[in-house]
Write a protein that binds this DNA or RNA. Structure first.
Lengths: 231, 231
DNA sequence: ATATTTAGGTGATTTAAATCATTTACTTGT
DNA sequence: ACAAGTAAATGATTTAAATCACCTAAATAT
């Protein structure tokens, strides 16, 4: 599950991700020397809320869910992480303890870097630091948007948000297949599975989407956007 | 309202704030040379959502409210900024456009730095960059907590949160005076003024707090914590 | 000084969504 | 192939909080 990294074979995939673009060859070599690649199976936990932070994780392939657990097994999913993005940066550099959990939604390859090595690169390379800062800001603004939606949008609006999120950010297609259960989707909308099912089936009955099990087709992107907008 | 800064008189207050601790004398001089001090009166707007970002703002004295405006004049207050903290960093480095507004809750002195000069310091001084990263992470985690509370805590729990927030983070006392109207306090709890008034008056009737206009005394900190915890 | 607006407060009513209960349809493991 | 567990779905009921309507008390403007 955990393997040492060979430098030459890794420099290549580095350059496809904008994050490592700012690192020079020495820095890339240093990063690789202080990292491992770890594979996680679907549903495996990457890290659990309330455990100590240790590594910076970068998703190479697969799909990862970020979620928070509260009292009486209530869960709220924050987002789904796409390949080419960091996982849990906010906790690693914000607290010694993870403030949320992460689990693999699909089989995933994670590039794990020692926290202190990553910190060295940030301190040494200002452009790299700025990329990280930009990402953290974007992430923060995303959460603020979710907070606003949670406070003021009704369920149809929040479900429309999530449909747009999957279609535009995750799968980049108007047809896709959820890799999450209804309960998990409900957690992403900040509601219960029953309410989620009822409301998304109304979308289906109103022919705004086609829904067959986990297969979705957005029939009227326009209506979904209007629903999201009106809240 | 806007005055040029004299270097020698400013180096002093710099050192009382941990943020500028990592800057050497040259960097401090550079920062001051690229900054102005601006005063805002109570209720004046520092920046408005959907306008272009331009400066990094640091609160020297006063109190500032960060809030987002949605459809049909719905507002959600994110937080109250204390002296010694940056205002709107997340938008300045996350987007060209402010994603939220800020207004002075009390008369406030703002130290404003040109975005590009601030960026230079981040790129040049890795420790400074790490401090900024740490702050952004903390801010992000704070919003995530609010999101969780908004999704799963009932109003009494969210009001208890806000009471703890004022008492522990803002005023650092169990007696304090709100500088906000009931409507603004409601916006900080993600509710309406009517619901806020009803619920906080229940706290008063149950002798958990004393409330007289805007004057608050937390009578049983323990009960407030329990209410916050149970949700 | 008086009018007008803004803030604080209360009661009655409605409403969105949670909760509870149960059924049916899939997966997953042995 | 079958049992057992998990996921999806739907109806009935309850509930927290929004909305609506109104009133009083301060604050601000003329």
């Amino acid at each position: 599950m955990n393997k040492k990294l060979d430098i030459s074979s890794n420099i290549n995939w580095f350059n496809q991700y904008s994050f490592f673009r700012t690192l020079d060859t020495d820095e890339q070599t240093f990063l690789i020397a202080n990292s491992n690649k770890v594979n996680f199976d679907r549903r495996e936990v990457l890290f659990k809320q309330n455990t100590r932070t240790s590594h910076v994780m970068f998703l190479q392939s697969g799909l990862v869910k970020i979620f928070k657990e509260g009292k009486s097994k209530k869960r709220l999913a924050l987002k789904i992480v796409n390949p080419g993005n960091f996982i849990g940066l906010m906790s690693v550099f914000g607290d010694d303890i993870y403030q949320y959990s992460a689990s693999a939604v699909e089989d995933s390859e994670i590039f794990m870097t020692d926290r202190s090595a990553f910190l060295n690169l940030i301190k040494k390379n200002g452009d790299f630091a700025m990329d990280i800062i930009h990402t953290l800001c974007k992430d923060g603004l995303f959460i603020f948007d979710k907070l606003m939606a949670q406070a003021y949008k009704h369920l149809p609006g929040r479900i429309a948000n999530v449909l747009l999120y999957f279609s535009q950010d995750i799968y980049k297609s108007h047809v896709f297949e959820f890799q999450l259960t209804r309960k998990e989707l409900a957690e992403l909308c900040g509601t219960t599975k029953e309410s989620f099912i009822r409301t998304i089936n109304e979308f289906k009955n109103d022919k705004i989407i086609n829904l067959n099990g986990r297969k979705v087709e957005i029939v009227s992107m326009n209506l979904v956007k209007i629903l999201s907008d009106l809240g």
